[in-house]
């Protein structure tokens, strides 16, 4: 993501007095808006991304159909529900950056730009989170929506199981984003210790994709492996929103799913804050 200099609203970094909540919010909005603008700047990118997203939607949709036609009722889904799960989950993948990355910390550490980020009159963690919010908003509209509509058209995906499910699904999306951000941000911060973070990034991309439920629903992971997979924070990213979406009326458990997401989001953000403090102590600006 291109780092765009956010226009600093008056009072945001007022050294003479503590900034008000309103000014703080305005700063967040300005950074998110700048990040959003950077993400719509490349039209061809949006087109390429939508195309690849739809392709993956088709592949994963057919794979799910093949599995569920051979074993109807697996994990309590009929084939229509299974396809809905896979197709909408796939549509959300880019928004929640399940492919990993999208946070430029390692790159900024490599090229030294991190020194500028550290010196900003705005918290380091907050700066990246605000950018992420802007990016995700753009991706939700420009990637998830077209891929979701393509999935609906191709496979006739099911609508939300009930109005409660729809509301729960909407509430679960920001939480999923926070969990995804927390994981990717922490992985990005490893760059402060190991400089070449590409190995860590590649491994985290694979684990994110696999354990988020984007490849196969976590509910069909067998035995103890499945138990562990469902307890990991990754499930909060795709599995939980889709679980809520498909939860039948009066099925309950929506609150528990949201609590699972919120718990992990809080834990990851606290961890992110702590590790940020440790990481920033390691920054050395070398002349050159």
């Amino acid at each position: 993501m291109t780092v765009v200099a956010a226009p600093r609203p008056p009072g945001a970094a007022d050294v003479t007095g503590p900034p008000g909540v309103l000014a703080e919010l305005r700063t967040w909005a300005a950074i998110a808006a700048a990040s959003a603008r950077a993400n719509v700047a490349y039209r061809a990118t949006v087109a390429a991304s939508v195309l690849s997203n739809v392709t993956l939607t088709v592949l994963r949709g057919y794979l799910a159909l093949a599995v569920w036609e051979a074993r109807p009722g697996l994990a309590g889904y009929d084939s229509r529900h299974a396809v809905t799960f896979v197709v909408l989950g796939q549509a959300l993948m880019t928004t929640f950056a399940v492919f990993g990355g999208m946070i430029d910390v390692p790159w900024r550490v490599e090229n030294g730009g991190i020194v500028i980020d550290v010196a900003r009159p705005f918290g380091f963690l907050h700066w990246w989170l605000a950018q992420e919010l802007g990016r995700a908003a753009v991706f939700l509209v420009s990637r998830a929506l077209p891929a979701g509509l393509a999935g609906l058209a191709l496979f006739g995906a099911a609508p939300p199981a009930s109005p409660t499910a729809a509301a729960g699904f909407a509430a679960s999306l920001p939480l999923a984003l926070l969990v995804s951000f927390g994981i990717r941000y922490l992985v990005g911060l490893t760059a402060f210790w190991i400089t070449d973070a590409r190995g860590a990034l590649a491994v985290s991309a694979l684990t994110l994709t696999f354990f988020s439920g984007a490849v196969l629903p976590l509910t069909i992971f067998p035995g103890a492996f499945g138990e562990v997979a469902r307890a990991l924070p990754y499930g909060a990213i795709i599995q939980m929103p889709m679980d809520i979406y498909l939860r039948p009326a009066g099925g309950g458990g929506i609150g528990e799913a949201l609590a699972f997401q919120a718990g992990w989001a809080a834990a990851l953000l606290v961890a992110s804050d702590l590790v940020t403090r440790l990481a920033l102590r390691r920054v050395v600006a070398q002349g050159g």
Binding site: T2, Y42, T45, A48, S49, L51, N53, F99
Partner: peptide, 11 residues
């Protein structure tokens, strides 16, 4: 589209 790395990875 220099920003399309993710799309390349996805494809």
């Amino acid at each position: 589209a220099p920003d399309a790395s993710v799309a390349v990875v996805a494809s």
